[in-house]
Simulated assay, not measured.
Amino acid sequence: MKFVLIHSEYIKLDQFLKLADCVSTGGMAKALLEEEAVKVNQEIEQRRGRKLYAGDTVEVEGHGVFQVKAE
């Protein structure tokens, strides 16, 4: 599991995917979510604006498992 540090209360899923180096653009994030290749806390997630908080886990097909950590 990899940890991704955020500097605010939450981060939106599309921004998280960019920060975790899973995608490089918002359009790529949208496509990845449409393919149902992303799970948040073990449930498939398709909403780009889903808010992630410290302790949430994100599993990205082909990239691994990440956990949100707060500063």
Rank of each mutant, 00 (worst) to 15 (best):
M1D: 04
M1H: 04
K2I: 07
K2V: 07
K2T: 09
F3W: 09
V4Q: 05
V4R: 03
V4E: 05
V4G: 03
L5F: 01
I6G: 07
I6C: 07
H7G: 11
H7Y: 12
S8C: 04
S8M: 03
E9M: 08
E9S: 13
E9W: 06
E9C: 05
Y10T: 14
I11G: 05
I11S: 01
I11R: 05
K12N: 05
K12G: 00
L13A: 00
D14E: 03
D14N: 01
D14F: 03
F16L: 03
L17Q: 10
K18L: 02
L19C: 06
A20L: 03
A20N: 00
A20W: 01
A20K: 01
A20D: 04
A20M: 02
D21C: 12
D21A: 14
C22S: 15
C22F: 13
V23E: 10
V23G: 12
S24E: 04
S24A: 00
T25C: 07
T25W: 01
G26N: 09
G26E: 08
G26I: 07
G26H: 08
G27Q: 00
G27K: 03
A29Y: 01
A29C: 04
K30M: 00
K30H: 02
A31N: 04
L32I: 00
L32C: 02
L32D: 04
L33V: 10
E34H: 04
E35S: 13
E35M: 10
A37P: 11
A37E: 15
A37G: 10
K39Q: 15
K39E: 15
K39I: 07
V40P: 09
V40M: 07
N41M: 10
Q42Y: 14
E43D: 11
E43K: 15
E45P: 13
E45F: 12
Q46P: 06
Q46R: 10
Q46L: 07
R47I: 11
R47E: 11
R48T: 12
R48H: 07
R48G: 09
R48E: 08
G49M: 07
G49P: 07
G49E: 08
R50H: 12
R50L: 14
K51A: 05
K51L: 04
K51S: 04
L52W: 03
L52H: 04
Y53I: 05
Y53N: 07
Y53T: 07
A54D: 14
A54N: 13
G55R: 00
G55L: 00
T57W: 10
V58A: 10
V58I: 15
V58Q: 10
E59Q: 01
V60A: 06
V60H: 03
E61T: 15
E61Y: 14
G62N: 02
G62V: 02
H63Q: 15
H63A: 15
G64T: 03
G64F: 06
G64P: 02
V65A: 13
F66W: 12
F66R: 12
Q67Y: 01
Q67A: 11
V68F: 11
K69C: 06
A70R: 06
E71C: 12
E71Y: 13
